[in-house]
Design a protein around this nucleic acid. Sequence first.
DNA 1: CCCTACTTGCGAACTATTCGCAGTTATGTT
DNA 2: AACATAACTGCGAATAGTTCGCAAGTAGGG
Lengths: 125, 125
Amino acid sequence: MKKLKKQLIDAGYKMTTPRQLVLSELFACHHPISARNLHKKIKTVDQASVYRALNLFEDLHLVNVEVIKKEKLYCLAVVPHHHIICKKCGYTEEVKCYHDFNSFKNFFNVYHQLTLTGICNKCVK
Amino acid sequence: MKKLKKQLIDAGYKMTTPRQLVLSELFACHHPISARNLHKKIKTVDQASVYRALNLFEDLHLVNVEVIKKEKLYCLAVVPHHHIICKKCGYTEEVKCYHDFNSFKNFFNVYHQLTLTGICNKCVK
DNA sequence: CCCTACTTGCGAACTATTCGCAGTTATGTT
DNA sequence: AACATAACTGCGAATAGTTCGCAAGTAGGG
């Protein structure tokens, strides 16, 4: 959390209450969450500000985005990790991150985002 | 292309002109493309139908989706592959697919989607 | 404590995506 | 080859998702 704040500041941004709230909600939430649901949880922050915060965090690579069933979901990118998500019920598990691309082919500053979807063993029955 | 048609039919859907057109446009386009741009290229097909086709193809895993700079991009999933995309200029290269998750943890029918973003060597200067 | 550039909230504007329905079409069947 | 029918499309309009512009508020350096 402190580390996140430092990254914000170092990049030239301020740690404001709305940003703080969005971050701590993401921190508290142990699975990817949509902008909309995030806003529902912190109604004191305007929706435009939630979007602005998420976009900023995304640019700074503080959060990752993934699309599940047409929904954009955000989660903190503190420790690199991914998710596997059941397409039927939405049940989610964490998946360790296997890779560390940093430069790749002729690209630099490479980030990657891996999404796994499947059917969990409960839904398969 | 024939293989794609077979997959549609086998899943109980019809190969119609709009779907055909969307598929061949995706086939002709060698990089991920947005629904909007796809529709621009085939104006004879209504936008709702473009979306319907893309959603169907996505369900059948005929196409992959990735989000780059807040834009959802689609590409054919014929041969499993991924992309690395420059965040500055959008320049795209293909990346071979290294993995074959099929079952993973307690999930079945697992598909994965990997997106790499970075800065290409032209933009880095 | 003050200054100022960066942020926010608000309302409204955009953009993206989907819906409902009447008319059309692909496909299996005769 | 024409038919029947369930699936599909186009259209217009609705809904959802995201961003904008601006006046007012606030974090953090001096």
